[in-house]
Amino acid sequence: MSKNKKKFFQILLVFAFLGFLGILINNLIINLARTGLGFNFNWLTKPASFSLAEHPLPYSPSDSYAWALFIGWMNSLKVIISSLVLATCIGTLIGFLRVGKNSFFSIITAGYITVIRQTPLLIQLMCWYFVGFLNMRNNSFLSISNIFNISNKGIELFGLNLSPEFSALLFGLSIFSSAFIAEVIRGGIQSVPLGQWEAFRSLGISEKQGFFKIIIPQALPAFIPGLTSQYLNLAKNSTLAIAIGYSDIYAINDTIINQTGRAVECFIILLCSFLILNLLITKVMGIIDKSIMKSGI
């Protein structure tokens, strides 16, 4: 394509795109006027007048919508970060067992991965919550003196009480993501050439040492992209909290939309909060990636 033609093409494209966007926005304005919905963010300062079961920071129904949204964001962040850690631990363990020589565990973990990966997260969450946690009635399912206690009141850990909603979400998200993370770990380990194994074995290094000191450091860079995308998925999947009554950012947006009818504004807020979250995770993983590269191999 000649340069002039290209330029012409680009200008045309700009006009077409702007025109299309303009039409959509025009439609939106017409429709907003027609339905009397309007578009502004003044309502953010009005009192929310709904209460929340879980709030990491002080909150009362007389606080503003903006504060309620922020609490929702904190709730989301809370569950994302904790299940991110738990998912990584479980996933790594499963991944190691999957590639391990122990055939029994290898089969079990393979079964675990297929079952978890091939059922929808939403149903898993509902099972965890309604069938799992709530079904335990009042007798505790697993309790180790006063330190750790799982019951239908949630999880108690060192006096820290986690609600059943949070616990179910934590478990559901972690277990779902762990199956994917295990696959990432397996892929990473398998990406290390077989020669490396033979090399350290022939040097007389023990299997354990060789695995952790030689294979894993080489596999680490291969983990990062897969892990990043799994973490992003986990963050996005946390919005399913609404199905089991946990007040995350999406659930609070949903309540606000119902109360105020501000669907467009709430959607924009939701969009922005996830773009920020996305950026955050990508940045952190980028830093980790860089530090691995620097420290390493």
Binding site: L28, I30, T239, Y250
Partner: peptide, 25 residues
Amino acid sequence: DVMRAVPLIAVLFFGQLLIPLFLPV
């Protein structure tokens, strides 16, 4: 990039409730 950043439920919400707002009357 934007599509990969937002949760699916938000996109579905957009599809179910907000697409009508972007269409002509």
